[in-house]
Amino acid sequence: MATPGVWFVRLLGGVFALAGPVVLVLGVRDLARGESTVGDLPPMPLWFLACAGLLVAVVLATGWRSSGMLRRTWEAGGNLRRAAVLVVTAAVVAFPVLMGLGALTPLVLVWLLGGLCATGLLIDKPSRA
């Protein structure tokens, strides 16, 4: 049974697990066809960015509340765990900001780094409080 507060990280991991192979296959296909271009994202509508900001607020509030996964992991100690928690928090904040700015390359790097750290936190399973 999942501990409380882990559901959103598992949801995030599920999105990475589903989107990752699709993005990889499409990227390899575009490279093979010579159609690959590096550019910026199209402008995002304001309502979309507002919804993304609200989602970020909910995810961070859930993760950092006293029974949340991020808070429990932080309190469990360890420099590597705490660094991963900080990176996940920063990635959750930076992702919609970079999306709003249209910065595609940093967006993908933040996405990958945040997913890697979130996966590490799920695998680590710190002691339960």
Rank of each mutant, 00 (worst) to 15 (best):
Met1His: 15
Met1Gln: 12
Ala2Ile: 10
Ala2Met: 10
Thr3Gln: 12
Pro4Leu: 07
Pro4Val: 08
Gly5Ala: 06
Trp7Glu: 14
Phe8Gln: 13
Val9Tyr: 03
Val9Asn: 03
Arg10Trp: 13
Leu11Gln: 08
Leu12Met: 11
Gly13Met: 07
Gly13His: 03
Val15Arg: 00
Val15Leu: 10
Val15Asp: 00
Val15Thr: 01
Phe16Ala: 01
Phe16Met: 05
Ala17Asn: 01
Ala19His: 04
Ala19Gln: 05
Pro21Arg: 05
Val22Met: 11
Val25Thr: 09
Leu26Tyr: 10
Leu26Glu: 09
Arg29Asp: 08
Arg29Lys: 07
Asp30Gln: 02
Asp30Ala: 06
Leu31Gln: 07
Ala32Thr: 14
Arg33Asp: 11
Arg33Val: 02
Arg33Lys: 05
Arg33Trp: 04
Arg33Gly: 07
Gly34Ser: 05
Ser36Pro: 00
Ser36His: 09
Thr37Lys: 06
Gly39Trp: 02
Gly39Phe: 02
Asp40Phe: 03
Leu41Val: 05
Pro42Gly: 13
Pro45Asp: 01
Leu46His: 06
Trp47Ile: 09
Phe48Lys: 11
Phe48Ile: 12
Phe48Arg: 12
Leu49Trp: 09
Ala52Tyr: 00
Gly53Cys: 06
Gly53Pro: 02
Leu54Trp: 10
Leu55Trp: 15
Val56Gly: 01
Ala61Gln: 05
Thr62Gly: 03
Gly63Thr: 06
Arg65His: 13
Arg65Trp: 13
Ser66Asp: 13
Ser66Ile: 08
Ser67Asn: 13
Gly68His: 08
Gly68Trp: 01
Arg71Asn: 01
Arg72Lys: 12
Thr73Val: 13
Thr73Arg: 05
Trp74Lys: 05
Ala76Gly: 10
Gly77Pro: 00
Asn79Gln: 11
Ala83Pro: 07
Val85Ser: 12
Leu86Asn: 06
Val87Pro: 04
Val87Ser: 06
Val88Thr: 10
Val88Ile: 15
Thr89Phe: 03
Ala91Lys: 03
Val92Cys: 08
Val93Asn: 05
Phe95Arg: 13
Phe95Cys: 10
Pro96Trp: 12
Pro96His: 11
Val97Thr: 02
Val97Arg: 02
Leu98Ala: 10
Met99Thr: 15
Gly100Trp: 03
Gly100Ser: 07
Gly100Asp: 09
Ala103Tyr: 14
Ala103Val: 08
Leu104Arg: 15
Thr105Tyr: 09
Thr105Asn: 02
Thr105Asp: 06
Val108Asp: 00
Leu109Gly: 10
Val110Cys: 04
Trp111Gly: 09
Trp111Arg: 12
Gly114Lys: 08
Gly115Ser: 07
Gly115Met: 06
Cys117Met: 15
Thr119Gly: 14
Thr119Leu: 14
Thr119Cys: 07
Thr119His: 10
Gly120Thr: 06
Gly120Phe: 12
Leu121Gln: 06
Leu122Lys: 14
Leu122Ser: 11
Ile123Lys: 15
Ile123Met: 14
Ile123Asn: 12
Lys125Val: 15
Pro126His: 13
Arg128Lys: 14
Ala129His: 04
Ala129Leu: 11
